[in-house]
Design a protein around this nucleic acid. Structure first.
Lengths: 331, 331
DNA sequence: ACAGTTCTCGTAAGCGGTTACAGTCAAGTC
DNA sequence: GACTTGACTGTAACCGCTTACGAGAACTGT
């Protein structure tokens, strides 16, 4: 039936007018209950809600956006080099979209122009993968376009997970289990988040009087393959370690594979902890969980402040170690 | 200056009215030149265009969308399991966004509900990662919501790259170079694209009378790490091969690393060809290039047809082997 | 010079919402 | 009982843009 209807009467959704008509009230009233505005009789509100439910009405985000006087089109702009962060990034994006659209905001993806700047302007921006002297930061500031940075930079609004504390928690956990020679698996240190995780590791090691030997700092190239090769190399070089703190879940996966391929049992022989708590990694990995929904919520909150013209403020979202099956007391 | 202006006069872009005023014409006329409608004097058109340029005016996509009678909000819905495709996926997305927004369409990302169905409806959909009996397909068909599938399924509108031919091209290239025992590195065969690439490999091998030995089919788990381990295992098992056709660039990277770690030179000892031609992989890999911009263009074209209620049509976008530095004549 | 065409362009009514404003009506006050 | 008051709700303008409609200007041919 539906498949042969070629004359496009596609998705003619009901409008606010239909609801008003069906409920016997005005569009203004419907709009008021939709937006939880005061000044609607409880009984009327109830009735309108029932009608909305009955008609399966969903407000049109586009029309709503146009009506709102506040700027509500927020642009999403991803830095050039940050495609490596994708698993985490995609998850964050999902949360962000949910958060924004339930507030009537519209998220538009805005690509980078050839000059590194966003190629189109929105009313506000969420920026990813920016470093301190990123042109985008100064550009948007000049223009007075409000934005929030996922990450960290001077003098702008930013939100970031507590990477340093995460590194500290992960390392402390291993230390508490009796490990002393703990490998830190990371990548080239261009990324602030990974620098912070590293810093947390150092602090925890220092506090516990554990060795901060340079051979324990292993370059895993941010990838599972890089981590795998690095760990095998470390094993071959016999640097001696009983635990690994990988700065990402992917690297943890590589590390575990390498250990197993070399005949070592995880966590019997070597403990491994990751970072991010990506759902697709599997349920067994001890890791540091990022509170992605919270990250999104906070981002949106700061965004609203930015749009409202409030003073810049920042937020650090806590992370939490989840102890699972890849860590054990040192034998 | 800009940073202290707390009273939000942010991004008060000029409107069509401003342009009309400045140009001394009506908004209707401005709109007409904007949309290349007939019936405006060449001189006037010129003048309006100049004014637009001078004012830096950009039409508001939201307002435009609202005005258009045609449904133009297209939803983007990603299947549950397809996060593994991300590098390719992200690139495609970029092209798609460009293509759509230059046409005044609005792309909104729509997450999967808990039941696997899109949790919100748009006027039309682009679907990813669907298999033949995907609920989303029947669901949207029932509702009469037009959609285009990136991939392949019966009785719906779809567009896909010519994976089979790509597999054939890659394998033929290696065969022409004198290779006979060619490993095919892929993943578990749940994904149609990878099945097709495999099929192309088989066909080319068969046509050339080359051996289709089962040990040449190696499971690389779709990942660089998986490929690395698989190739090392194959090497250790001494199955004998002089070339590898990896069904993705990432697996090719893993394969190359494994070969090098085992003391083999690429392409001197073993040739490797990948698939996708991802820009971040590096410039040296012989690979099968996906024409991503074209894929996006075609997707949008089919989408328009779908919205217009035309009969379902499909498209297969050609791929092309790019011979670079990782393949050489067999010694 | 004049009626009939053809161009060009301004006017105004939407698109689907929001909201300032004003109006209605029952309850409260004295 | 007349007057306030305050809670509800309807009306209409507006967000920025498109487009059907109609009016005037410019051409055409005779």
């Amino acid at each position: 039936m539906a498949s042969r209807s070629t004359n496009a009467r596609v998705s003619s959704r009901s409008t606010i007018g239909d609801v008003a008509l069906a409920a016997g009230v005005s569009t203004g009233t419907v709009s008021r209950v939709l937006n939880d505005r005061a000044g609607v009789h409880p009984a009327t509100r109830e009735m309108v809600l029932a009608t909305i439910e009955r008609l399966g009405y969903r407000p049109d985000a586009v029309a709503r956006t146009l009506s709102f006087r506040q700027p509500t089109r927020i642009g999403l702009n991803v830095g050039a080099g940050s495609r490596r962060l994708t698993p985490f990034f995609m998850l964050f994006l999902e949360s962000l979209i949910g958060e924004l659209s339930s507030d009537g905001y519209l998220l538009e993806e805005i690509a980078n122009g050839p000059d590194g700047l966003p190629e189109r302007l929105a009313d506000a921006f969420v920026l990813f993968g920016a470093h301190d002297d990123d042109i985008r930061l100064s550009y948007l500031s000049e223009l007075g376009v409000p934005f929030v940075l996922l990450g960290h930079a001077e003098g702008v609004r930013w939100v970031m997970p507590d990477d340093r504390d995460g590194g500290h928690q992960a390392t402390s956990h291993l230390l508490r289990l009796g490990h002393e020679r703990i490998v830190h698996l990371s990548g080239l240190m261009h990324n602030q988040a990974f620098l912070d995780r590293h810093e947390g590791y150092r602090a925890a090691m220092r506090d516990a009087g554990a060795p901060l030997a340079p051979e324990l700092l292993v370059d895993g190239d941010f990838s599972s393959l890089g981590a795998y090769r690095a760990v095998r190399r470390a094993l071959a070089a016999d640097i001696g370690f009983s635990a690994v703190f990988a700065a990402s879940d992917e690297m943890a996966v590589g590390a575990i594979a390498a250990l197993q391929d070399c005949g070592l049992k995880v966590p019997l022989d070597v403990s491994v902890v990751g970072f991010d708590d990506l759902p697709e990694i599997g349920e067994a990995l001890t890791t540091v969980r990022q509170d992605i929904p919270r990250l999104a919520t906070v981002t949106v909150a700061l965004l609203k402040e930015a749009v409202a013209g409030k003073q810049p403020a920042n937020a650090i979202v806590p992370v939490q170690l989840i102890a699972r099956g890849t860590t054990a007391r040192r034998r």
